[in-house]
Amino acid sequence: MKFGVVVFPGSNCDSDAYHVIKDVIGVDCEYVWHETRDLSDFQALVLPGGFSYGDYLRCGALARFSPVMDSVYRFVDEGKLVIGICNGFQILLEAGLLPGAMLSNNVLEFRCQWVNLRVENTKTPFTCLYEPGEVIRVPIAHHEGNYYAEPEVLEELERTGRVVLRYVDASGNPTAEANPNGAAHNIAGIINEKGNVFGLMPHPERCSESILGSRDGRRVFLSMIKSLETGALLS
């Protein structure tokens, strides 16, 4: 099994994801330069955080046109796993692999802080090692994380269990105060219909070692590995 971490020129969380997968968990992992077209070596891809091409226009708007993204579409069609973290989530939205769009945080500022997340759906290849309704502590760091979608899209996401992570308070309630950016329905992470593309604004790779204050994020990667090993939850 091999993970690929896509490197856009302005990616800056690429080495963090690589570190967790390769050094902390111990699974084979390679960087994938954004001009690469052959992804046949990989079973899972990480689109990491950062500022892919500077993001002066709209986050991820240019990245969707990069050569690697052509191959990512095929990769997704083949049922392999793709996780987009932060800027990676924004790219997945721009690329149409997930529905909706990102607006600027309602506080109109960059926000770097710890948040509480409730795991809403554990029947996904990205969250199968969490308990249903479990509250986890994970950091965010973004300026555009205010998730937006048309009401009918939100309704469908909710109905089909595709809202995977939600911002909540310490007791697990999705309150307005617990929402750091104004995201619709306190949405922090969603999954595609097929269940193999996951986008989330929080950074699980930043909380996968106890020295960093929490290991709650590690199970995202472990869930992916387990799904790939067992074939469970894969379409």
Partner: peptide, 11 residues
């Protein structure tokens, strides 16, 4: 002030 800075990147 510092919540506007990404102080965690590079882990």
């Amino acid at each position: 002030v510092f919540r506007q800075y990404d102080y965690m990147v590079r882990t």
